[in-house]
Simulated scan of single mutants.
Amino acid sequence: MPAVADLDLAALNSATKYPSILTYHELDQRNNGGLTEKVTEFSGDVVLTEKVDGTNARIITLPGGDYFLGSRETLFYARGDRVWNEKLGIVEALRPLAERITSPELGIRVYYLEVYGGNKISRASAQYTGAQTLGHRLFDVAAIDPAYLGLPLADIALWRDKGGQHFHTEQELTEIAVDEGIDMVPRLATLKGSELPTGIEAMHAFLAHHLSTTLVALDAGAGGRPEGIVLRSMDRSVIAKARYQNYDRTLQLRAKRR
């Protein structure tokens, strides 16, 4: 593992970016925000978790205690920085956590968290707080081999986009969260893949049944409307998201055609 001063920060940033997650029903390219009937297929057990509407953030931890903080696209802070980018409240929310969590003995460990609430972190901030309270929840952890940092940036991006990052399983993720004392995004249920709805209307009802109000409100003034649900296989080989907004939009479009 190279010393922090010798790290290629562009390579580190690219190798640790969180990958895009597909929607459970495929997005309809002909209708902005709408969905088609094609679904993501799951087999075996599927874990349902709340999808929190905030900003995607990273804590990148290195052997010896060094760490970096960033959004999905950009690194904002390194351990010991006296001045940092205040954008989105990520450093404010995550620096205390980054200072106390365990460093990996080898390689790079990345904690992926949703930072939410606060002062307009997202358009949905008021659904989680009425007092501009800032919160965070862990939703994934990955182990990154430092050897990939030596590749050209284009190759790193290709490796990442083809699933090269090693994400921990549901059991491993839960154990890490417990060991480090980090709150996770809420677990709603565990179902068989065959129990998941396949129709648009059925999935809309499924969302309302499993998550009618957010479980991560930060104070009594929160509006409470949730964003949706993330579905993931136990080994995280398949992961997809189902957002109220997409299903509402699709059903509205269908109603107009009648």
Rank of each mutant, 00 (worst) to 15 (best):
E105C: 04
G135H: 08
D235P: 11
F167M: 00
F42R: 09
V185Q: 07
I60P: 03
Q245E: 07
S233K: 03
S20C: 05
E37M: 11
P152S: 06
R109E: 11
D53G: 06
R249M: 07
E50P: 03
T250E: 10
G64P: 04
T133L: 15
D161E: 15
K256L: 12
P63D: 06
K120E: 11
I156C: 06
R243H: 01
L211T: 03
R258I: 14
V178E: 14
I239S: 13
T40P: 13
F68D: 02
R243T: 00
P2R: 07
K51L: 11
P197M: 00
A242P: 03
Y112M: 09
Q29V: 07
A240F: 04
V83L: 13
L75T: 02
K51M: 13
M203L: 09
R95S: 07
S43I: 04
Q171R: 13
R82I: 03
L113Y: 00
Y148V: 11
E86Q: 13
Q127M: 05
A10N: 12
L62T: 13
T74N: 04
T55V: 07
T174W: 12
L153F: 01
A242T: 06
G223V: 03
G150H: 08
F206Q: 04
Q127F: 09
G150R: 14
D219K: 09
A10V: 09
F68G: 03
N119E: 09
G199Y: 10
E201T: 12
I90G: 12
V185S: 04
G54N: 00
D140E: 14
A11N: 01
R243M: 01
A131L: 13
V91M: 05
R58A: 02
L48R: 10
E195D: 15
D155P: 01
M234R: 08
L173Q: 13
A11Y: 00
V230P: 00
Q132D: 13
A208D: 09
P186A: 05
T129F: 05
G118P: 10
Q252F: 05
V238R: 02
A11T: 07
G118Y: 11
A255T: 06
L153G: 00
P96S: 06
S14P: 05
T129I: 12
S194R: 14
D145V: 04
G221M: 13
S125V: 09
P197A: 01
D219I: 08
T74Y: 02
S43E: 07
A3S: 14
S212M: 04
L151D: 10
R258G: 15
Q132A: 10
V115P: 11
R243N: 02
D66H: 15
G130P: 07
A177S: 10
G80V: 09
A98E: 07
D53S: 06
T198L: 11
Y148N: 04
A124C: 08
A142C: 05
R123S: 05
P104S: 06
S237K: 14
D66S: 14
G89T: 07
E73H: 08
L35W: 01
L75Y: 01
D45C: 02
T133Q: 13
T36N: 08
G33A: 10
A208W: 12
S71T: 15
N13Q: 06
P186M: 09
L153Y: 03
T190P: 12
N31T: 08
E114F: 04
A11R: 00
R187S: 08
I21P: 05
Y148Q: 11
V83K: 15
Y116F: 15
A202F: 10
